[in-house]
Nucleic acid binder design. Structure first.
Lengths: 216, 216
DNA sequence: GTCTATATGACGATAGAC
DNA sequence: GTCTATCGTCATATAGAC
C-alpha cells in the first residue's frame, strides 16, 4: 500500500539536466504557495497549479509524484525560510529577556514581509494542529513540533532564572504571547490599515508590564 | 442567479406535521456540528451527514435545500448559543472592568463545555475571516461582524474612562487578549491535560498587571 | 521531458417512483 | 416524506503517444 512509485526521480545519467528540473520544481513550489495563500489548502487543485504554471495537469505530476508532494514542498519552503530568520534573530540577542522581544519582532517581520507565507502557515496549522485527525489530510509528515511556542517558553523560563522576569507559568504566558501575536497578524491581513509595527510595540509593552520583576 | 428554489418549505396544510420536520432539522444540524468539528468544513460531505443520520443523501437535501444550508444551520446554532451565554455574562457584570473578566471567562467556559462547537467556530473563522475571499466558500452570509473583538475593545475603552484601566490602545489590547485566549483554548484541544481554568486565571492576572492604572 | 487522452471516483444536486 | 437512480462536474492520477 505504501511504495510511492518513485516520485519525480528522473535524475539524468548525464550531468547537467538537473538544472531545469530544479528550476521547474521551484517555480511550481512558488506558485503553489501563492495559490494556497489565495484559495486555501482545499481550494488548491492540481489543475489550478498547472494553469498558473502554464503547463498541463500531468506535467505537474511528473515533477512531483502527487498533489500532496506539491503542497508538502510549499509548506517546507515556507517553514524553512521562517525558521532560519527567526532563529537567527534569537541567536543574535544578548540575553534571554531580549531574545523574547527579538523572537516576536522577527516573527512579525517575516509575516508582514511575506503575507502569502503567513496565509499558508495559518492554513497548515489549522488543518492539522487543531482537529480532524486522520481524514483526507495533506499530512505534513508526522514530525511536526509538538508545541508551537516551546522555544518561547524556554526563553521565558531562562529569563526568569536570570532574574529578568518575575515568576509566572511560562507555558501559559508563551501560549498567550504567541496567540496574541497571531491575532495581531491576522488582523493585519483583514485590515491592511492596521499597523503591525505599533501593535507589536504595544504588545511587547503590555508583556513587559505583565512580567516585570517586582522592584524592591 | 439567486432564487433559492424554496429550501425545505414543505409546510403542511394541516397543523401538526411541522413537529417531525423540526426534529429532523435539529437532528441533522446537531450531527453536522459534530462532523464539522471532527473532519473540518471541507471534509464534511452530504454523504457523511446522511450516513450519520441513517438516512439517504437525498433526504438531507429534502430538509435543507443545499449542503451550504446545512452548514449554515450548524454555524447559526453554535453562534447563537455562544452569543447568548457570553452576552448574559457581560450583562451581569457590575462594571466595565469586571465585564472584561466575565467576557473572557464566559467564552472559555462555553468553549470547554462544548469542544465540538469550538472546533466549528475555529473552522468557520479560518475559512472566511482570514483570506480566500470569493472562491468555493460556505459563505456564512455577508453580515458577519467586521471585527471579532469589538465588544472587548468597547469594554476596555469604557473601563479606561472610568479610571479602572491605564491608558493604552484598546484595539490592540483587545485583539491581543482575545488571541491569547484563543491560543489557550486551542492548546487545550491538542493537549487534554492542559487545564483551561488555571490558564485563564493566569491570563487575566497578566492582563491585570499589564493594564493596571498607575498608582500614585 | 511534456503532452493528449483517459480511468476512476467523490462530490452536490435533481427527477421521479413509492 | 423518504427512497432509488442518475446526471454533470470536478478531483487526482495513470498510460502511452510524441
Amino acid at each position: 500500500m505504501a511504495e510511492q512509485r518513485t516520485p519525480a526521480r528522473r535524475r539524468t545519467t548525464d550531468g547537467t539536466r538537473t538544472f531545469t528540473e530544479t528550476a521547474r520544481r521551484e517555480q511550481i513550489t512558488a506558485l503553489a504557495i501563492e495559490l494556497i495563500a489565495a484559495h486555501g489548502y482545499a481550494g488548491t487543485s492540481l489543475a489550478r497549479i498547472a494553469e498558473a504554471a502554464n503547463i498541463s495537469n500531468a506535467a505537474v505530476l511528473y515533477h512531483f509524484g502527487s498533489k500532496n508532494a506539491v503542497l508538502q514542498s510549499a509548506y517546507d519552503a515556507v517553514i524553512g525560510a521562517l525558521t532560519d530568520q527567526v532563529s537567527a534573530a534569537v541567536g543574535n540577542a544578548d540575553s534571554s529577556r531580549e531574545a523574547i522581544d527579538a523572537y516576536v519582532r522577527a516573527l512579525a517581520g517575516y509575516m508582514t514581509a511575506h503575507p502569502a507565507h503567513m496565509r499558508l502557515i495559518v492554513e497548515a496549522l489549522m488543518t492539522d494542529e487543531l482537529g480532524h485527525a486522520g481524514d483526507p489530510p495533506p499530512s505534513q509528515g508526522a514530525s511536526n513540533p509538538p508545541h508551537r511556542w516551546e522555544l518561547l517558553a524556554d526563553l521565558m523560563t531562562r529569563a526568569q532564572s536570570e532574574g529578568d522576569l518575575r515568576s509566572f507559568d511560562a507555558r501559559t504566558a508563551s501560549i498567550a504571547l504567541g496567540g496574541a501575536l497571531d491575532a495581531i497578524l491576522a488582523e493585519s491581513l483583514s485590515d491592511p490599515d492596521y499597523g503591525v509595527d505599533p501593535a507589536v510595540d504595544e504588545l511587547l509593552e503590555l508583556f513587559a508590564r505583565a512580567t516585570a520583576p517586582t522592584e524592591e
